[in-house]
Design a protein around this nucleic acid. Sequence first.
DNA 1: CGCCAGGCCGTGT
DNA 2: ACACGGCATGGC
Length: 241
Amino acid sequence: MSSANNKTRPTPARRLRTMHETLAQAYGPQHWWPAKTPFEVILGAYLTQNTAWKAVERSLANLKNAGAVTLEGIRALPVEKLQELIRPSGFVTRKAQAVKAFVALVDEEFRGSLARVAATPAGPLRTRLLGLPGVGPETADAILLYAFGKAVPMADEYLRRIVERHRLISPAPNHNRKGYEALTSLTRDAFAADSPNRHADLYNEFHALVVAVGKAHCGRTAKCGGCPLAGDLQRYGPKVL
DNA sequence: CGCCAGGCCGTGT
DNA sequence: ACACGGCATGGC
């Protein structure tokens, strides 16, 4: 046997489901995504790529002042002006072009209607989004889940760290596409026993809680002191990193 | 003043 | 397939 308590150790999916409850107790309802409209969610999803949310807030404030938190607002904006407005969140060349490309997709393939985009089934829509420049799996899933309410689990750097540090999955290949899918697959498994009509809400809340705990405790170096999940790690994990 | 943030992409092996 | 830098900017 590899360890003394193998028999009583829950499956990784079970542990993750329990961690969701622990986080929900610790942090309460998160009311995600922090945005008023689906399009604002989408803009935030682009802008927050490898960027602190605080910086995204300043960019969104700039866009609001310019009346550009709408499809038509972005359409009317020259890319140079768009770059200027989103400058606080960095990677402006790429992000401005990427946002323009999203609007172009809506215009050219959905006749300018975000509602028509939202009405598209999650699978095909995910493929379309992944075909856009500046949209990887996480951005695509954030849009599907938080802008359009699809029952799509999402993962991020924080979840990867939590899952790795708690040894829920093997040390794993770094960062690549396969690693991301392992995380979303594990998340699906974690909530598989829950009613399907609750999955969208559960995925929504779970990721929001992961970010909440992640910001406080799951930086590049772990800050496990005071972490609500420390008990789980102590009980089942080999050691705190 | 360095490190880093709610990733993605191109290039090299 | 997978590792590795670069990408821009501002907070702490």
